[in-house]
Simulated scan of single mutants.
Amino acid sequence: MRRYKRTLLAVALATSVITGTAGWASGSAQRAVTGPPPGTDAWVEDRSIGRALPHPATASARQVAGFFRTLSPPQQGELVRRHPLVVGNLDGVPVALRYRANSLAVRGTSFERLAAPGRQILAFDPRGRGQVAEVYGDLERARTVSVVVPGADIDAGTFDRTGDPYGTPTGMAKSLRTAAGNGTAVIAWAGYTTPVGVGPDAATGKLAEAGAVRLTRFGQGLKALALPAPVLFCHSYGSVVCGLGARDEGLNASGIVVFGSPGVRADSARELKTPVWAAKSADDWISKVPPVHFLGLGHGNDPTDPDFGARPVPARQAHGHSGYFVPGTDSLHAFAAIARTGGTR
């Protein structure tokens, strides 16, 4: 009975927090972007190369990769030209082709900055608030690969905002790639619909469940191209996405690092079926979120609690909710070591 009362108290506190009575901003409800990439109908009907194209909704990443290996360079180029949004978002398509396709896809949109010389855009979906993935380093030749999975308020518009740089996917990925050094590649993956603000979406798993499906598919695309299984660096609500994805045997990951996490929808690290590291700074506001999962509300145990069983990452020099990748911090130093070894550290 005493434990039950503590749970109800935690739920009440969580409810007051997410509805704004604790002084936090409420969020607006979001509809998750799911399904095959835009332009799929035209792609499926295309017979310009004299054969059927793999259906984005049913073909596996492995099947897509196999199909593209049978195409000549002119045929590949024709599909990039005719269907940049499909080629640029279809997991299993060769990396260089996706870069070319997305460079075309972003032109003429409000996100044209993504086509700047030197940027390696691995995915661009303009639906909803927009989703983006960008590569730092040489992905095709990397010995190890890392993927940064961000939390709330990240979309194509905020993906590379200049304010709060280490709270953005690009800022975190750039910092990690610089610290980890040559031989590593880091992908900033804003490939799911994130919550806006701290509201009901952030307190439930609806968007994370949809995001986990997309993250799993993305990882299968890397595997289909014979690239190293990535270490996932999961920030805030992004750790919920990673936690739910890790329950799927199809998630292609060599390890998961969660930081500033409200929980990962698991009682212990063992449930995630892969090595898990966890970090939280002393003044991260996420500590105010009750470690509860009850009637769909909250995300469960604190991953930095010793009883959870994750490997601890020092974060004494990190500050706030977005200070984990600041150059010179102990957290970034530890993250870089994990990235360099591909999760075997």
Rank of each mutant, 00 (worst) to 15 (best):
P94T: 08
E249K: 09
E209Y: 01
A229E: 12
L244F: 01
D305Q: 03
G243Q: 10
P314M: 01
S110P: 04
A310F: 03
V95T: 09
G323P: 07
Q131S: 11
A123Y: 05
P74G: 12
G181F: 00
A282G: 09
G309L: 03
G243M: 11
W24Y: 15
H321F: 13
W277R: 04
R119A: 02
R69W: 06
F67M: 00
T184D: 05
D283V: 04
S110Y: 07
R47S: 06
Q220A: 14
V213Q: 13
V257L: 15
R31K: 08
L332F: 14
G309K: 02
V292T: 14
E134P: 06
I18D: 00
P84L: 02
H321S: 06
Y324F: 09
V145G: 14
L232I: 15
D248W: 09
P291F: 08
F111W: 15
V148N: 11
F218H: 03
V86Q: 00
V276R: 02
V289M: 15
E112F: 08
W189F: 03
L295E: 14
V257G: 15
A116N: 06
T194I: 00
G77I: 07
W277Q: 02
R62S: 11
G50I: 08
T158I: 07
V93E: 06
A59M: 03
A246K: 03
H83D: 00
L225S: 07
P74S: 15
A266E: 07
A203M: 08
L90R: 05
G320H: 06
P291C: 09
N102P: 01
E112D: 13
P73R: 10
A142P: 15
T329E: 12
T19G: 09
A203H: 06
E249C: 05
A202I: 06
P303N: 01
A210H: 09
A269W: 01
P150S: 09
W277A: 01
G260Q: 04
G243F: 09
A156W: 01
Q76A: 15
T40I: 08
A310S: 10
H333E: 15
V132S: 11
D164G: 01
R340V: 07
G343F: 10
T274L: 14
T274P: 10
V198P: 01
P73N: 03
E45W: 08
P169T: 08
W189S: 03
G157Q: 06
H299F: 03
D267N: 05
I187N: 06
P228E: 13
D307M: 10
G263E: 08
T216Y: 04
P150V: 00
R127P: 02
D153P: 07
G128P: 06
T21D: 10
G20P: 01
G88C: 02
E134T: 13
G245C: 04
V11L: 06
G205H: 07
G250Y: 12
K174Q: 02
R311Q: 04
G221Y: 15
W189N: 05
D91R: 10
A337I: 10
G323T: 09
G328A: 13
V196M: 12
G211W: 04
E45C: 12
D307C: 05
P228S: 12
I338P: 14
R119I: 03
R141W: 02
R31T: 05
V33H: 13
A339V: 09
V87E: 04
A57N: 02
Y192P: 00
I338A: 14
V87Q: 02
A96D: 13
R2Y: 04
D160I: 06
V87I: 04
A318M: 01
H299D: 02
I154S: 12
G23E: 14
